[in-house]
């Protein structure tokens, strides 16, 4: 993971033709991933249990075709990035995004904070209940994106998650997890 982080962070510098082979080539990772998913499909397809009554094209045909396609695409992506003289070609949709992203790759601190919040939410939803886990989710993301008043935001978060609880269970009649603590009380 850390090597990937470093590669990504220095991606743009590759254009100034400095640094090692890896600079500006973190996209290789995508090619490898695409190829690996294709390989996974192919491997699992050969291992699949197929009902005996299957006629004509069975359940293995499509996954095999897609797996093969992904392997070819993954290799092509990787080769294109690895070729000398590669410049990161960004399609037009991204031009604006990249324009305001002049500079290095990603900011890892807010990104990891956000990801961490999501993981924590997942871990807490059933045990601590929606009100706590939902508030944490709101608070965590708003802090990761640069909150200025952390304490005030905590209050807002709790209010948001309580309001949601009320709206869902009384308004729509849908149940959200209430948490182990309240179940014991």
């Amino acid at each position: 993971m850390t090597t990937f982080v470093q590669r990504t962070a220095s991606r743009r510098d590759g254009e100034s033709a400095s640094g090692s082979f890896w600079t500006g080539r973190s996209e290789l990772f995508v090619g490898v991933l695409v190829g690996a998913i294709g390989g996974f499909l192919l491997l699992r397809t050969t291992m699949m249990d197929v009902p005996s009554s299957v006629s004509f094209l069975g359940p293995r045909f499509f996954p095999a075709v897609i797996g093969a396609l992904l392997v070819v695409l993954g290799v092509s992506l990787a080769v294109r990035v690895a070729l000398p003289g590669h410049r990161s070609t960004v399609p037009e949709e991204q031009s604006e995004m990249e324009a305001d992203a002049s500079g290095a790759g990603s900011d890892w601190k807010p990104l990891l904070l956000t990801a961490g919040t999501l993981v924590a939410h997942l871990a807490l939803l059933r045990t601590a209940g929606w009100i706590v886990a939902g508030a944490l989710l709101f608070w965590g993301v708003s802090c990761a994106l640069g909150s200025k008043h952390k304490l005030r935001d905590l209050g807002i978060s709790v209010i948001v998650s309580s309001a949601v609880q009320l709206a869902f269970s009384t308004g729509l009649g849908l149940s959200l997890p209430s948490g182990l603590l309240l179940e014991v009380l």
Binding site: S161, S162, L176, E183
Partner: peptide, 18 residues
């Protein structure tokens, strides 16, 4: 208002849980 909302939310979660 905020405190009332939170209280009502907790109360609701409590009835749902029991």
């Amino acid at each position: 208002l905020g405190v009332v909302l939170v209280g009502a939310g907790l109360a609701d979660a409590h009835t749902k849980a029991s």
